[in-house]
């Protein structure tokens, strides 16, 4: 899959880019009050009724965005489907200033909207604030910590953890239960790997967290339907 993605990106430079995509690709990455200017296109969405999408959250792009049950999109979080459809699972928390998808890939190149750069985020994933997730796949229960970056086409396994400021390059893979700390050291989390009870606890904690956020963040699904 990752090979396919990269080849598509290479060939895309010679393609005629759809006009709408060039318009929508313009906004800056920085989230500010100007982020919700009319230039942003409203993407087609499927949002589960129990999901919480804050009023100030930004969902933009051309492709389909689906958000699963009990997922929380914080205010000022950005879900950008410029380059392909985005699927967000259940009990996912995307914190403020985090970017999922993204109009520009991590190498600064503008991504063209040929629709093949998909982003799947598994169940019970937490994307912490200011993290950038352009990954092809993020497995269940993973944590993308503050200011961590996941490059285009990367595949993150289940119950992985990216420590704050850690980064995974484009098309890299991380096996299940791996922790990546900032100097690029990988380490397997044996505690999670060998203890199903701990994993169950983790997912339960995530659910509790969602319940708490449900009280704190007013949801406005009508804006995106």
């Amino acid at each position: 899959m990752s090979d396919q993605v990269s080849s598509n990106r290479d060939s895309a430079t010679f393609k005629v880019v759809p006009a709408a995509a060039t318009v929508a690709a313009a906004p800056s990455k920085r989230v500010s009050s100007t982020a919700s200017k009319p230039a942003l296109s409203k993407p087609p969405t499927t949002i589960h009724p129990s999901a919480i999408v804050a009023e100030k959250a930004v969902l933009t792009g051309l492709y389909h965005i689906s958000i699963g049950a009990n997922s929380v999109i914080h205010p000022f979080a950005r879900i950008v489907s410029e380059a392909g459809p985005i699927t967000i699972g259940e009990n996912v928390i995307v914190n403020e200033r985090a970017v999922v998808g993204g109009a520009r890939s991590s190498d600064g190149m503008e991504r063209t909207g040929d629709g093949n750069v998909e982003v799947h985020i598994g169940n019970s994933v937490t994307v912490e604030s200011s993290a950038v997730v352009e990954a092809n796949m993020i497995g269940e229960g993973s944590i993308i910590d503050i200011e961590a970056r996941v490059g285009t086409g990367a595949r993150i396994g289940k119950y992985c953890k990216l420590s704050p400021k850690a980064s995974v390059g484009a098309n890299e893979t991380m096996e299940d239960f791996t922790t990546l700390s900032d100097p690029g050291r990988r380490h397997t989390d044996h505690l999670l790997k060998c203890n199903p009870t701990v994993r169950a606890l983790r997912s339960k904690r995530q659910k509790d967290q969602v319940e708490l956020l449900r009280r704190l963040i007013p949801s406005n699904l009508a804006k995106w339907s």
Binding site: K161, S181, H187, L191
Partner: peptide, 9 residues
Amino acid sequence: PYCSWSSVE
């Protein structure tokens, strides 16, 4: 809490 090392390992 940072790298999820534990003494169980």
